[in-house]
């Protein structure tokens, strides 16, 4: 399968890349989603700008009490990062669950987020982490929340000529436990449903809960009703169950040959309960 003809540029600097993108080129990162789409001719960009060639977009570092991840950090870079393992284990756990080794070696966090596949893994974790996203173009730079970035299936708030250049996630204290759990589609590894849980405990009570859900609907979202239901509780099995029961309420669930809408909602409840339980058990 050959893609349609295109022009290819591996720019030396981010400014050069942004200039080309401002003139209609499309960014290529790991290519794990874009190249299959080009081979199937679902996408036919005329000009690709290879961002992986830019070394200055590949970093993972701590600054100002937050973690900054460059857009071209690969899933393997993230899963194997000692810094993230220690300070944001939810992200390393999520990255390790993506696709397979070969995909994780090439695929990037920026590419995955910008592609916004409704069954991708990162969006659940990034919603639960209340991540921030730095968007850059030749003329502007802005920072968006996860709630504002993910718009719909395969649709983000990115404008033409704009790239996602950095993902920013918080550093949690030791009273926080996290977990990402998914029902993987057996062939592709994509999440039929995936739930990320982030829970903080204070004096025996749950003081903070964030739950991110992917795969269930057209965009990953935070299950705020379930979060509220668990806050202030001790985190007993009954508390978890009644909170998890709310994660899919009112959601317009997807239905396809892998899972019906009702089954997906059921999976979301079950996985939310398990992810919450695991997250609580991981509080140091």
């Amino acid at each position: 399968m050959f893609a349609q003809k295109f022009e290819y540029t591996a720019p030396k600097t981010l400014d050069e890349a942004l200039h080309l993108l401002a003139n209609g080129a499309k960014p290529l990162a790991g290519g794990m989603s874009l190249i299959p789409m080009m081979k199937l001719r679902l996408a036919a960009p005329e000009h690709l700008v290879d961002l992986r060639a830019l070394k200055d977009l590949n970093y993972i570092r701590e600054a100002g009490g937050q973690l900054h991840i460059g857009a071209t950090a690969s899933h393997y870079d993230i899963e194997s990062s000692a810094l993230l393992r220690q300070k944001c284990p939810l992200l390393t756990e999520t990255a390790a669950a993506i696709g397979d080794v070969q995909v994780r070696n090439l695929g990037t966090i920026g590419g995955s987020v910008a592609h916004a596949d409704p069954a991708a893994d990162y969006p659940a974790a990034l919603q639960a982490l209340e991540a921030k996203f730095v968007l850059r173009s030749e003329k502007s730079e802005r920072t968006l929340s996860a709630a504002d970035l993910f718009v719909d299936a395969l649709t983000t708030a990115l404008q033409p000529g704009e790239i996602l250049s950095e993902v920013i996630v918080p550093i949690d204290d030791t009273r926080t436990g996290t977990s990402y759990l998914k029902m993987a589609q057996p062939a592709s590894g994509f999440a039929i449903v995936g739930v990320a849980a982030r829970v903080r405990q204070n004096a025996g009570k749950i003081s903070f809960v964030r739950i991110g859900v992917t795969g269930l609907s057209n965009r990953a979202y935070r299950a705020t009703a379930a979060e509220k239901a668990l806050e202030g509780k001790t985190g007993s099995a009954a508390d978890i169950q009644s909170a998890a029961a709310l994660v899919a309420r009112g959601v317009d669930a997807n239905s396809d040959l892998h899972a019906s809408a009702d089954y997906r909602k059921h999976l979301a409840v079950v996985h939310a309960a398990r992810a919450l339980k695991t997250a609580l058990s991981r509080i140091a």
Binding site: Y8, G31, Q102, L106
Partner: peptide, 10 residues
């Protein structure tokens, strides 16, 4: 890596 999902130019 999977060489069917990478362009040679990359």
């Amino acid at each position: 890596i999977k060489s069917c999902t990478m362009f040679a130019v990359q």
